[in-house]
Design a protein around this nucleic acid. Structure first.
Lengths: 170, 170
DNA sequence: CTTGGAAAGTCAACATGGCTGACATAATAT
DNA sequence: ATATTATGTCAGCCATGTTGACTTTCCAAG
């Protein structure tokens, strides 16, 4: 707690002096927090015979209804063969609807069905509950910092996606 | 940017009003940032025919030299069979030394060898570079918030471990 | 001193979800 | 007419998780 995370240079520049120790602690915090972050949805998914990959696909389809497969591939960062396995089971099970594009008939636009949306809600409810609790405990200033650091950590391409999603869904 | 992350209640209580949208954004930020967070070490590990599991084991052995297998299992949250596969290759390849306990001869205390420490350094250097850049970009206040939120998100058991590691390694 | 249980290692079998490579189909774009 | 793009699919491989069963070693308590 008394551990200094950084200091302003006397000259006035806002440089940070970060020890290896401080950065290692940050890495561990990411590791443990991410484990907790995925634990709740994972427990739910077991009941449905789905995995984390299904959750991610469902999440982004909920987020951008009508996105095409290529966009989803870029968001998830996996190969199309890998995604296809997941997406096929979701379509077969009636959780996702794939509609042929009107302008470009090669594209499939992806949507959640009623039951797909229901599962998405169940999963994200569980995940949001944990995040809400953490946000409340840490307070608004901490939350703003949390998001700033995460955003700064992202690869530029994904940061673009991340911000597009904000802009596209106000 | 103009998105409110929370407000203080007029009454004075520090409650946060968090929309689903804000929490979903947080989840996405976690997802994208974690991808970036693991990407650099993953690239390096490919050259050595190791995976992320090896990195995690090496990380915690570096962190607490001499820990026993049970402790490492609890930190990593995997089964002993799963860990054993990873640990065996690391021992066989001479990156990790397993020394029989003096008091309790059933226990094996794990240490990094010279070459193990070298690989750990290479991996964590890459990871720390990204974190350092993100920390610098976001600033000290943001970093403090980042850590607060991550800590609040952890499962209580893992938070205990997380804080023990701080206390044990001042 | 015996015995129960803990720490660790191992074998086998299986599931998930990554990957590559090759190929097919349909439709757009040149 | 042809090249390219978007998608889907098959086959196979790998890393890493799982459960279950079993052994060895050894500490500790009866």
């Amino acid at each position: 707690m008394a551990e200094p995370v950084g200091m302003a240079k006397p000259g006035g520049e806002n440089l940070l002096f970060l020890t290896d120790e401080q950065l290692r602690r940050g890495a561990e915090a990411m590791f443990f927090a991410y484990r907790a972050f995925t634990a709740d949805p994972d427990r739910i998914l077991e009941n449905y015979q789905y995995g984390r990959a299904h959750h991610r696909a469902i999440h982004f389809i909920q987020r951008q209804p009508g996105l095409n497969v290529n966009t989803l591939l870029a968001l998830l960062g996996v190969t199309k063969q890998s995604l296809n396995r997941v997406l096929r089971t979701l379509v077969d099970d009636g959780l996702v609807a794939a509609k042929v594009g009107r302008q470009d008939k090669r594209e499939r636009h992806l949507f959640l069905t009623e039951s797909g949306a229901a599962l998405e809600r169940e999963l994200s409810d569980a995940q949001r509950n944990r995040m809400r609790a953490a946000y409340r405990q840490a307070g608004p200033t901490a939350v703003a910092g949390f998001r700033q650091v995460l955003e700064a950590m992202m690869d530029p391409d994904l940061r673009r996606f991340y911000n597009q999603m904000r802009d596209g869904n106000p």
